[in-house]
């Protein structure tokens, strides 16, 4: 579904991605783990056309989407839930979700998906007319995920959805990610919480200073000595 080959990205003089190779197959959950500054967010942002790709190719559903402007990406069926949620703070929950459906024209389908998101996150339904800036961190994360789903993506990119959440809520979020995947959405999951990520993923990649260094089925990665030492706390 998604294929990235030898991806290089620079921020000015900084060589942030030095050859990413990654494949996501249909209906899988693929985890992308790595230390701070390894280039996980940069990878997601280059897929979405937010940062410029210097060389390499990104292919989505057989189409080359390298350096395609960001506003064409969403309607192809690809959406990202960004790091730090980035909800629109002065807009209501409802409006935030509608912004997620910005690229769509089928009003009936949008209304349907709104109900689907509210079914997934009943908390959001109760707060639909509250401005997003007044939500708790966890609720904002739910909103960000819901907003990402509103474009009805075939592939959902999630950037550290567990960041800053209490353990119970982390479990809840991961349960929902599995549920979303069960409903037919393919997922590329970036996580610091490698344990949790690998526990729900089918396949995993480890990123180190801009390169994919280890890859394999999630279960194998969770057993891998190097990975355990570096990311799973021994």
């Amino acid at each position: 579904m998604l294929r990235i080959e030898d991806l290089h990205v620079y921020y000015g003089g900084i060589h942030a991605l030095k050859g990413i190779n990654l494949t996501v197959a249909q209906s899988q959950i693929v985890a992308l783990i790595g230390a701070n500054g390894a280039g996980k967010s940069t990878t997601l942002n280059s897929i979405c056309g937010i940062v410029r790709v210097e060389s390499g190719t990104i292919e989505f559903l057989g189409k080359n989407i390298t350096n395609v402007p960001s506003h064409h990406i969403v309607s192809m069926g690809l959406s990202q839930v960004p790091e730090g949620r980035k909800v629109f703070p002065a807009m209501t929950v409802n409006e935030n979700l509608l912004m997620g459906a910005y690229s769509r024209r089928d009003r009936a389908g949008v209304r349907e998906d709104l109900e689907r998101v509210f079914a997934l996150f009943p908390r959001l339904k109760e707060r639909r007319n509250q401005t997003a800036g007044t939500l708790s961190g966890g609720e904002q994360q739910m909103l960000a995920i819901g907003r990402g789903l509103m474009s009805r993506p075939k592939l959902l990119l999630l950037d550290e959805p567990s960041m800053g959440l209490a353990p119970l809520l982390v479990q809840e979020i991961f349960r929902i990610i599995k549920e979303i995947n069960g409903q037919g959405t393919t997922i590329l999951l970036v996580e610091q919480n490698a344990n949790m990520a690998l526990s729900i993923a089918d396949y995993g990649y480890v990123l180190e200073t801009g390169k994919t260094v280890i890859q394999g089925p999630a279960r194998d990665l969770a057993q891998n000595e190097d990975v355990r030492a570096a990311y799973l706390g021994g």
Partner: peptide, 18 residues
């Protein structure tokens, strides 16, 4: 609405396909 979204968070607005 796109205008308001853009004024609140440009990168997030781009991710919405704006």
């Amino acid at each position: 609405m796109a205008m308001r979204a853009l004024s609140q968070d440009r990168d997030a607005a781009r991710l919405m396909g704006i």
